[in-house]
Simulated assay, not measured.
Amino acid sequence: MYARERGFGRQVKEVRRDFRDSLFSIFMDNLSLKVDVSGLWGIFKVFGKVRDVFLSSGSNSRKSVFAFIQFATSEEAQKVAKLTNGMHVYS
């Protein structure tokens, strides 16, 4: 997505916006090191249309990972969070 930004002297420049700026995220913590992006995508697409998944590297001292699963609307993210709260993934 591109947006036009007008500066001083009536200059116009193209500014590229990241599509993820308009997404709504749910946060998952304490996930197994065995979890991968495609696995999370597959699990959460059942509950709503997944737009993006971010998965941490798992290199922290707790030996677990966290993830952000992103959806297009706030309502969809809230619905998914409610339906999956307390769900065990790869435990």
Score class of each variant (00 low, 15 high):
4 R>P: 05
6 R>N: 12
6 R>S: 13
8 F>G: 14
9 G>I: 06
9 G>D: 13
10 R>H: 15
10 R>L: 15
11 Q>D: 14
11 Q>Y: 13
12 V>M: 12
13 K>Q: 10
14 E>F: 14
14 E>Q: 13
15 V>D: 03
15 V>R: 14
16 R>W: 13
16 R>L: 12
18 D>I: 04
18 D>G: 03
20 R>N: 07
21 D>G: 06
21 D>N: 12
21 D>Y: 10
22 S>T: 11
25 S>I: 01
25 S>R: 00
27 F>T: 04
28 M>A: 08
29 D>A: 09
29 D>G: 11
32 S>W: 00
33 L>P: 00
33 L>R: 04
33 L>W: 03
35 V>I: 06
35 V>P: 01
35 V>T: 07
35 V>A: 07
42 G>I: 03
42 G>L: 06
45 K>S: 14
46 V>E: 14
48 G>L: 05
49 K>E: 12
51 R>G: 01
52 D>P: 00
52 D>Y: 12
53 V>F: 04
54 F>R: 04
56 S>A: 10
56 S>E: 05
56 S>G: 09
57 S>Y: 08
57 S>T: 08
60 N>R: 11
60 N>S: 15
60 N>D: 12
62 R>D: 09
62 R>G: 00
62 R>Y: 08
63 K>P: 03
63 K>H: 13
64 S>C: 14
64 S>Q: 15
64 S>I: 15
65 V>I: 09
65 V>P: 01
65 V>T: 10
67 A>K: 01
67 A>P: 07
69 I>W: 04
71 F>L: 10
71 F>R: 05
73 T>V: 10
73 T>I: 08
74 S>M: 14
77 A>S: 11
78 Q>A: 14
79 K>N: 11
79 K>T: 10
79 K>G: 00
82 K>T: 07
83 L>D: 14
85 N>Y: 01
87 M>F: 04
87 M>D: 06
87 M>P: 02
88 H>Q: 09
89 V>Y: 01
89 V>M: 03
89 V>A: 05
91 S>R: 12
91 S>P: 14
